[in-house]
Each structure stands twice: as C-alpha cells, then as structure tokens.
C-alpha cells in the first residue's frame, strides 16, 4: 500500500478567526469531517476536523474558550455541520449563534439541558 497514516495536524485558533479559516480550508480542497466539544478544566475545547480525501490528511481547528463566549456557526459555509453544532449546543451548552437549522435543544430527547456541560461539574 502506498498511503501511510499522515500526522494529524492541530491548529489553535481564536473564535473570531473560525469562519475565515473554515472558508480557507474549504477553498483549498478540504472537506468537513466532524466537530466536537469537550469540557477541560472549566473551558470548552471545540475541535473542527477537516479531511483531504486525496492525501487522507486530517486538519483540526481547535478553539479554547470560556463557557460564556459566543461562537459563530459554520453552517452557512459547510451545510454538513448542522447536526454537530446542534449536538455541541445541546450536550455542552456551547453558545453557537445562527445555526442554519436550529433544533433548539430538541435534537436528542433528553430531560436535562446541557448534561455534559458546566452545570454538571458544579454539582
């Protein structure tokens, strides 16, 4: 086999640069793979992964922010991100504004709001 696992690239960015970088990556032939949130030491870590299916490379944008900051939605650029952003919003309570198709915390039918978010750690 000729293709070997390329190193996963991780790029730290600010929340305000997100849309710009996503647009640049999309222009250079990457496609959106996944987005997820994690709560590490009281801060949100948001990862947006993009992959290049020609070289099998994986490029991840990482935003570390406090739990109150608003993050712009990337669904205008990448329609595929709808579910991922709704999930981040619902499970962690990440404040994402202007999602194309906002389920308003009704993506999963769960009773709690933001069960994996900040509220849980305070308990």
């Amino acid at each position: 086999m000729d293709i070997k696992i390329p190193e996963n690239e991780l790029e730290m960015i600010e929340g305000s640069d997100l849309l710009k970088r996503v647009l640049e990556l999309k222009k250079s032939g990457f496609r959106f793979s996944q987005a997820n949130a994690a709560l590490i030491d009281g801060n949100f870590e948001l990862s947006y992964s993009f992959s290049d299916y020609e070289t099998y490379g994986l490029h991840t944008l990482r935003i570390v922010t406090d739990t109150e900051q608003e993050i712009p939605s990337i669904t205008q650029i990448v329609p595929a991100a709808v579910f991922y952003e709704n999930e981040m919003k619902e499970l962690y309570g990440v404040k994402i504004k202007m999602i194309d198709l906002d389920y308003r915390d009704k993506l999963y039918r769960i009773r709690q709001t933001a069960p994996m978010g900040k509220q849980k750690t305070e308990e």
Binding site: Y103, K106, L107, Y108, R109, I110, P115
Partner: peptide
C-alpha cells in the same frame, strides 16, 4: 429529527 434512542 433523531434522538429517540439517545443513551449517553
């Protein structure tokens, strides 16, 4: 819409 069998 999904979410009928979310198990956490």
């Amino acid at each position: 819409s999904i979410g009928f069998v979310h198990r956490g």
